[in-house]
Design a protein around this nucleic acid. Structure first.
Lengths: 337, 337
DNA sequence: TTGTACGCGTTATCAT
DNA sequence: ATGATAACGCGTACAA
């Protein structure tokens, strides 16, 4: 009776194969076989077990199965900045693909500082893999989980460590493409709005612009940091445009460019008449009629496809040497250049 | 040797408590106790075990622990529409809160049709709970998991079923607040752009507008469906404004309103001079300088807080009767009314 | 304070 | 084709 009270106060445990076996008058292993494709089992018996299982709401416990065969089918996804439109679009596509493969993405907000303890905790799960999207503070995570032996795939930032595969955009090439288009169109007075310095992608994208300008014998007249956000892009562009006469503004990403575009409009600078603005990433919003932003496409589907591909290869062969796949961005001409 | 080859070809298994115990010259239970706060264990021995564990990269396996105590700390999060800005903002906040509580969110894209099989698969995990965000096709999911006995918390859509807790915005009140502001400001010729019919929130939001207009003795001059997206809002508003003379446009959500705002600008209709436009949700974008959208706030943090609160209460007391918490929206005056 | 032994739910192996 | 049994890694009741 004390036992009974305990049982009702506690959460009722899941229905187990044992219970189903008793209800069906078969052995527990028969139930297990009924749910194992290709296992030897009388067809009628299998059907009967399935029916009883369905009526009792039985499903094999994936945790116990994973304990047995060492595969949890759980994949942690660390997102550097959950407020970035590109990163969230990326994650949503990634989640859909993982779902389709019966891999279960555990999402971790890598943004704030409280993450350190979260890292510890989530690494207690025997993860099939760890996927990193962008971010900067993940060094600890990388060392931790490579010690544990969890395969890692990083995207948006190249991690040089054993057992880490990478998928990354050719950032410098992207801005180079954009800058070339603007130079060819006759633009001569360039400004640049970058991202935070700690991101290597920031440096690479800036370098692409500088390369083209140097080659064309043009100066980079002014630059500022836009922090990768609309608000910061707005502020940076406002300052830049008030203090300089520019005819081209290359931005480190689309959010920044959209902020810059808004600033130009408020200042009465005609886009693209007097000023060209280009972004980077090609997020959904860039396509909206209000913006119609010329930008560099950082292809999400292709990148996710590569991440998934590396994931499957790594799972098939854990000893496979690490590799880095570079994705080619391309210019998307729209209405702001 | 065949054994050895197998071991290197396969993925190396995680370090286990047994291995650490051998390395430290203690029993396996001592290792377990070393990681159990408040367990009896010599302080020096605990420290030594921790050091050795750290050097070997040992962490207790959360799967095995969960198998023992019946709690996986895994929470599935079903997202009805991963392309909705509001839903993604919501999910990101939710994920952060769950992480902080050491609950691990498994994200499921409830959007496309391939989901049915995914539902089956993810329910094999002994989930602590299931959180539903919006969406429509989740009836099967609800019956399935209530049979299994997994607690569910739905947000954005009220699910009438035993064991399902709900958090939902007072949708009609929200649009009522907005419509009242517009009527008080002297607007008389109203249009409405709604969402898809299968969502109850669509009907409720429309009703709020109708209530106010009826009370004021005003007609609803024209309406259309905006599908909750920017593009559809743009198209709907274009048609509505070309075929009618309106001075107020209430939209079912912010995406729709932003589309409508863009359409008004392209048609040369002055906002807010000749036309008021209000949205619903108060997503990040509504605040951006280009839009500066007057809208109804559907408070994300408060809603997430309630979801978390219900989750913890349910976990503490699985037999607790279901409840529905209603959230009060409020009008956010900005530049479009 | 410490070690032994059991159970959590599953699947694979081994007899039958 | 089927049932008993071992093993996966852990926490803990129990005995020492």
């Amino acid at each position: 009776m004390s036992d009974e009270r305990k049982r009702t106060a506690q959460r009722p445990r899941r229905v187990t194969a044992q219970t189903v076996a008793e209800a069906a008058g078969v052995s527990r292993s028969a139930v297990s076989r009924a749910f194992t494709p290709g296992a030897y089992l009388d067809a009628g018996k299998r059907k009967k077990i399935h029916e009883i299982a369905a009526s009792m709401g039985y499903q094999p416990n994936a945790l116990a199965a994973g304990l047995k065969d060492g595969r949890s089918h759980l994949v942690a996804v660390f997102v550097g900045n959950m407020r970035s439109a590109y990163d969230t679009e990326f994650v949503m596509v990634l989640v859909g693909r993982l779902n389709a493969l019966n891999k279960w993405p555990i999402l971790i907000d890598g943004g704030d500082g409280s993450t350190k303890q979260a890292i510890q905790q989530v690494l207690r799960y025997p993860l099939d893999a760890l996927i990193l999207r962008g971010g900067s503070m993940q060094n600890e995570l990388v060392t931790q989980s490579s010690k544990i032996g969890i395969p890692m795939i990083s995207s948006g930032r190249i991690v040089e460590a054993k057992g880490v595969d990478n998928v990354c955009c050719r950032n410098a090439k992207g801005t180079r493409l954009a800058a070339e288009v603007l130079v060819d169109a006759g633009r001569r007075r360039f400004g640049y709005i970058g991202g935070p310095e700690q991101f290597s992608s920031s440096a690479d994208r800036r370098q692409g612009v500088v390369d083209v300008l140097t080659h064309a014998g043009l100066p980079l007249i002014a630059e500022a940091t836009g922090e990768f956000t609309v608000e910061a892009g707005f502020r940076a562009a406002t300052t830049l445009l008030q203090e300089n006469t520019l005819d081209a503004l290359v931005c480190a990403n689309d959010a920044t460019a959209i902020g810059a575009l808004t600033a130009a409009r408020e200042l009465g600078v005609a886009v693209p008449g007097a000023l060209s603005i280009v972004g980077f990433d090609d997020i959904d919003m860039a396509r909206w009629p209000t913006f119609d932003l010329s930008t560099v496409c950082n292809p999400i589907y292709e990148t996710v496809e590569r991440v998934i591909w590396l994931l499957e290869r790594r799972l098939a062969n854990p000893a496979k040497p690490s590799e880095t796949i570079l994705i080619d961005p391309y210019f998307v001409p729209r209405g702001t250049h």
